[in-house]
């Protein structure tokens, strides 16, 4: 594929290789194009979270490679990898994982500040992003004062803050009710459509699967099915 931003080749992850080997990933080949809205689906223990960790540079493969924008991230040292994540990847976690001591705006601006951007610029963009996810009224609230759905929208805004190449979302709707899930998906779909942001989810949630334009089924560490809608 010409527009691939992610190329995964022969990816394997083996735990306990010297005793009782467990293949979390067993030869994954996958290419993801810019602007995709893709769900990685599979039962618990299938390897979908491990695959997401590999794409996010949070874990290193036992074999194979992950290439993002032409860079093999498994060959980067720890320092460069952190810097790479900061500049290229946005993360959304299942339990939101916002910093409880910072307000919604500060949480979003924080990632840009890590990049060394000026405070004024960070604050302006944080406000824009929070407005985009419908939280213009709650910018100065701390996470404890926000609902689960609102917190996850802050997390999406935070993930977008650094203008990443793509966003990795690990079961982002697992803790949300139907209304919050629907709102969140609408926002992400809108961002995907209008801003061409690439979203990669791992999920069990049928509502997310239904909205995804590509669904990759992972079973026993292998891709079982790759379906485009």
């Amino acid at each position: 594929m010409e527009n691939s931003i992610i190329k995964i080749q022969g990816l394997k992850k083996v735990y306990n290789p010297d005793t009782i080997p467990v293949f979390a990933l067993n030869g994954i080949n996958l290419e993801i194009e810019e602007g995709e809205f893709i769900a990685i689906v599979g039962p618990s223990g299938s390897g979908k979270s491990t695959l997401l960790n590999m794409i996010g540079g949070l874990d290193s493969p036992s074999e194979g490679s992950v290439e993002i924008g032409g860079i093999k991230i498994d060959e980067l040292d720890s320092k460069k990898l952190i810097d790479f994540r900061l500049k290229n990847i946005g993360f959304v976690f299942q339990d939101y994982s916002l910093l409880p001591v910072l307000t919604a705006k500060e949480n979003v601006a924080f990632v840009m500040q890590l990049q060394g951007q000026a405070d004024q610029k960070c604050n302006k963009r944080a406000e824009e992003l929070l407005t985009a996810v419908g939280l213009q009224e709650r910018m100065n609230n701390r996470p404890a004062k926000l609902s689960g759905g609102q917190q996850q929208r802050v997390a999406v805004a935070r993930a977008l803050a650094s203008k990443p190449k793509f966003i990795l979302a690990d079961e982002p709707t697992a803790n949300l009710d139907s209304k919050s899930t629907s709102d969140l998906l609408d926002i992400m779909l809108q961002l995907n459509k209008e801003e061409k942001i690439t979203f990669i989810f791992s999920t069990h949630d049928q509502r997310v699967i239904d909205k995804a334009r590509r669904v990759v089924w992972v079973v026993d560490g292998k891709i079982d099915k790759d379906e485009r809608k």
Partner: peptide, 16 residues
């Protein structure tokens, strides 16, 4: 622990 893991994941350098 979890929060520090998240900070590292989103790109906070070890020195920071």
């Amino acid at each position: 622990t979890k929060e520090i893991g998240v900070l590292m994941a989103v790109g906070m350098s070890k020195s920071k």
